[in-house]
Design a protein around this nucleic acid. Structure first.
Length: 581
RNA sequence: CGGGGCGUAGCGCAGCCUGGUAGCGCACCGCAAUGGGGUUGCGGUGGUCGGAGGUUCAAAUCCUCUCGCCCCGACCA
């Protein structure tokens, strides 16, 4: 491709509303433009990347015998009513009405549609197992779209659905999908991790998420140093601390803590580290009333864990200030477990505290030297906190690390949730009609593009993994319009590159070198050749990787095989690096 | 949905408080110089000041309504 014939819509400044790097760079590089909140147009440059990602996904899906379909973006309400999700889904489901006043929605996912298709088409166990996928535009009317393409309302997703007669068969396909996903992300050149995950409202029991590791990631994942355990932070179990609780040494006393509300403030004021303070949160109990949750001051509450406790109302809801005032008699900042006449549940670590600090249930007062079993009764103990770096791995091997990730893939075992609701049955060997067992497997295709940038950029711009780069090579001539000789040589090389199947972007603009370098770096082309009169005299071309600091001279006559070798080695090394992540 | 902010040229912004008929940088077009890291000079193009209504001799500026976008808190690929 020649730049003169390509919409290279680079910007020197990024729009004020772009928060994260990937959004800024995608706009600056001319990959996307916003049309409305969370709705974007893909420009030629961005689309080339998107297509590369799609191609890899398609190849891998096809390779395991999944069949591609293409389902409608607009879906009739009836099917959603049948599965029960027309009511369940909430305002994220964009509902529309046609001219006959019939209800439809823009598909945020396609379980209903595929289940409807399969119940009509699949009759016999002999047709199973089967796996269907599509790459489709989805629409979820997010409350707050943000971060550009990363959390858009309209986005592109690969979704696959598998159908089985037995749980064993589902497990087999699920395991296969797990491997295929790992292969895809490896090929994409991304550093990623697969983690055990909660299933959310899609349903089902077993689930794994695939996260691209990036400091800016919205999700936190926990994994152990031995690489034998990985889970979403929401799910990562925390083992009870080893050893036993220290014996009480101090007696309990009330101290004044004027104006000190947060653990941080209290800790600093009393000169007691946060891990010797207890923080008490009041949440709604299942049978009405409140329940106190006690955590160590340096720990965070884990919603998912708390919601799984039988005493707690779901969804989790915190007491508001007036409620706290009535039940406890003080403000948030002074709540403590001592003397409460509501159930108290303490996290393992909090229950292990001795001589600790907590709120006194009176404004501007805290207690010090508090001890379980002496100053208040022993609490019910549970795992209700988020794991932190350094915790013992739940599988007993090594310690946990916490990393940030961007969720780009999610696989679920749905079971019979949809098939039962929608009567998708087939006949087994005995001629009995049985509910189909389903799995579903998503990948955020457009999100991958943003995630790749989050993970691979520098102050100059994007650094594409070669496998998904819009072009493999930038060809930059210096002062081509001044030299007929150079122009001929450049065109000859450009033709030769194309003939060799190398996707080169020739910057044939009448621009100064600095402009061309800056643009090619901004849009992240991983390999670059520079040609000049000077080089021509020596029969040399200059080669440089996007990540190199110094160029190297290559014989003009050998440049094609040379570049081919660099490109294929960069695809490989990226993939290798990814698999080590 | 609750709280906050912003809408002025393609992008980034000033002007608004204190009404007087719109400006800067980048980009774009032309000419010249320059020619290996966003170069320089000269000259240009481009704006219903988000929209509607009101106040006023006069509104980007003041008032009301409205639309859009962004940021902070409960979900998901």
């Amino acid at each position: 491709m020649r730049v003169s014939q390509f919409l290279l819509a680079t910007l020197r400044e990024s729009p004020a509303d772009a928060e994260v790097v990937s959004h800024q760079l995608m706009v600056r590089a001319g990959m996307i433009r916003q049309l409305a909140a969370g709705i974007y147009t893909w420009l030629p440059l961005g689309l080339r990347v998107l297509r590369k990602v799609e191609a890899i996904i398609r190849e891998e899906m096809d390779a395991i015998g999944a069949q591609e379909v293409f389902m409608p973006g607009v879906q009739p309400a009836e099917l959603w009513q049948e599965s029960g999700r027309w009511e369940e889904y909430g305002p994220e489901l964009l509902r529309i009405r046609d001219r006959h006043q019939r209800d439809f929605c823009l598909g945020p996912t396609h379980e209903e549609i595929i289940t409807d298709l399969i119940r009509r088409e699949i009759r016999s166990y002999k047709q199973l197992p089967a796996n269907f996928y599509q790459i489709q535009t989805k629409f979820r009317d997010e409350v707050r779209p943000r971060f550009g393409i990363m959390r858009a309302r309209e986005f592109i997703m690969k979704d696959a659905y598998s159908f089985h007669l037995t749980q064993d068969s589902l497990q087999e396909t699920y395991d296969l999908m797990y491997q295929v996903y790992s292969r895809m992300f490896t090929r994409l050149g991304l550093r990623f991790r697969a983690v055990r995950a909660p299933t959310g409202n899609i349903g089902g029991k077993i689930s794994h998420e695939f996260h691209v590791l990036a400091l800016s990631g919205e999700d936190r994942i926990a994994f152990n140093t031995d690489n034998t355990y990985a889970a979403s932070l929401e799910l990562a179990e925390v083992l009870p601390p080893t050893g036993s609780r220290g014996a009480p040494k101090d007696s309990m006393r009330t101290v004044a803590t004027p104006g000190q509300h947060t653990i941080e403030e209290v800790s600093r004021y009393l000169q007691v580290p946060p891990d010797r303070c207890a923080k008490t949160l009041l949440v709604a109990g299942k049978k009405g009333g409140l329940v106190a949750i006690v955590l160590r001051g340096d720990h965070e509450l884990n919603r998912v864990k708390v919601e799984s406790l039988p005493e707690i109302a779901t969804p989790l809801s915190f007491a508001d200030a007036p409620e706290v005032r009535v039940v406890v008699g003080c403000d948030f900042g002074s709540i403590g477990p001592v003397g409460l006449n509501i159930p108290v549940i303490a996290d393992h670590s909090a229950a292990r505290l001795a001589d600790f600090v907590c709120g006194a249930n009176q404004d501007e007062r805290h207690l010090i030297g508090v001890n379980w079993g002496r100053d208040l009764s022993e609490p019910k103990v549970a795992d209700v906190r988020n794991a932190v770096s350094g915790d013992r791995s739940p599988d007993g091997r090594g310690t946990l690390e916490i990393a940030r990730g961007i969720e780009v893939g999610h696989i679920f075992q749905l079971g019979d949730k949809y098939s039962a609701a929608m009567k998708a049955v087939c006949l087994n060997e005995n001629g009995d009609a049985v509910d189909l067992i389903m799995g579903c497997y998503g990948i955020g295709v457009s999100r991958i593009v943003a995630a790749a940038i989050e993970q691979n950029h520098d102050e100059r711009g994007i650094i594409w993994p070669t496998a998904i780069s819009p072009f493999s090579l930038a060809l930059i001539p210096i002062n081509m319009h001044k030299s007929r000789r150079l122009q001929d040589a450049v065109m000859r090389l450009y033709e030769a590159l194309s003939a060799a199947g190398i996707e080169a972007l020739l910057d044939d603009r009448k621009e100064r070198p600095g402009v061309m370098f800056a643009d090619m770096e901004l849009i992240g082309i991983p390999h670059r050749l520079v040609m000049s009169e000077r080089g021509l005299d020596a029969e040399k071309v200059e080669y440089q990787r996007r990540t190199d600091t110094e160029p190297q001279q290559v014989e003009l006559s050998e440049v094609i095989p040379f570049v081919q070798a660099r490109i294929s080695e960069s695809v490989l090394s990226r993939a290798q690096e990814a698999s080590w992540a």
